[in-house]
């Protein structure tokens, strides 16, 4: 159990592991996450479930090497075991009602958007996908997303592939295209991207679901470190989310809370980005 059965390098800093854990595979749904720890002195970190295969009893995770733990995680190879692998945690995403959806994945957020698009596609919904990232090198899953989306758009900051610009440029076009009414948007990616998406969907009053990657320890409601403000209410991302109504999320607060341990982490990794690289 918890053995890495497949490893793929999706981009220089983004890796995909398929991990053997039949109990989690049997229960996982789109939107849920796992918590893992890779050695005795290690930190517990949450990662969204990128895919699962109930028959093979496997769970897929995709992660970007940003902090100490993900960098170490990236060094593991096929056959290695993840010391602790817990889940599925959180509640599955309930997409807004409707027929026509836009699913947006930014950066490593492409990983969790894939099961969402796949689930909608399976239910016979119309799905338009938008993938975005800094450049061609950091994009992945174009083929997989292509299979579950009726149309797939790509945006890169540097224009190395697809539209030169942001995913929100494409989103705006899709919304203002009068031929199809969009019933719901699901967006997963960096907080500034999800915020920008919600700024647009709010304007057009389109229900939007986002997924938050808050800091947490146990993932079972016990620490409360993953507090998020949704409208006027404080929720715990681990047991009430991690998917929330994007039009109600206080993104500025979330961005600030993600910087909680920036100084401590810099001491270890030497990185200056504050968890945003």
């Amino acid at each position: 159990m918890n053995t890495i059965v497949l490893k793929e390098v999706l981009s220089p800093s983004i890796k995909k592991y398929v991990i053997d854990n039949p109990d989690i595979a049997a229960k996982a749904e789109a939107g849920q996450f796992v918590i893992l720890r890779i050695h005795e002195k290690g930190e517990r970190i949450p990662l969204t479930i990128a895919d699962f295969n109930r028959e093979n009893g496997t769970v897929t995770i995709i992660f970007q090497e940003v902090g100490n733990t993900t960098k170490r995680l990236g060094k593991l190879e096929v056959g290695d075991k993840i010391l602790d692998f817990v889940g599925p945690l959180g509640v599955p995403t309930t997409p807004p009602e409707g027929k026509n959806y836009v699913c947006i994945g930014g950066g490593v957020g492409i990983a969790p958007i894939y099961p969402e698009a796949k689930a909608l596609h399976k239910q016979g919904k119309q799905v338009k996908g938008i993938l975005g990232g800094r450049s061609k090198e950091v994009l992945f899953y174009e083929e997989e997303m292509g299979k579950v989306c009726d149309e797939l758009h790509i945006a890169t900051d540097d224009g190395s592939v697809g539209h030169k610009g942001f995913v929100t440029d494409i989103l705006k076009e899709l919304i203002t295209d009068d031929s199809v009414q969009i019933d719901g948007v699901i967006a997963v990616g960096p907080l500034p991207m999800m915020k920008a998406v919600c700024d647009i969907t709010k304007e057009f009053n389109i229900p939007t679901t986002v997924s938050l990657n808050s800091l947490m320890v146990d993932g079972t409601g016990m620490c409360g470190g993953c507090r998020v403000t949704i409208g006027n209410e404080v929720k715990f991302a681990c047991i009430d989310g991690p998917s929330f109504d994007g039009l109600k999320v206080d993104f500025d607060e979330q961005m600030r809370r993600l910087r909680m341990y920036r100084e401590e982490e810099q001491k270890v990794t030497g990185c200056q980005c504050g968890g945003e690289c």
């Binding site: 930190e43 620490c223 507090r227 403000t229 270890v268």
Partner: peptide, 28 residues
């Protein structure tokens, strides 16, 4: 929800179970 506000559960779990008092040797 300001940075620097903890539940006692979180503060103690980080310190006790995750041994944050030995950071960065222990990584929490």
């Amino acid at each position: 929800n300001l940075n620097g506000v903890y539940s006692a559960n979180e503060f103690l779990t980080r310190a006790n179970l995750m041994k944050a008092y030995l950071y960065p040797k222990w990584e929490t």
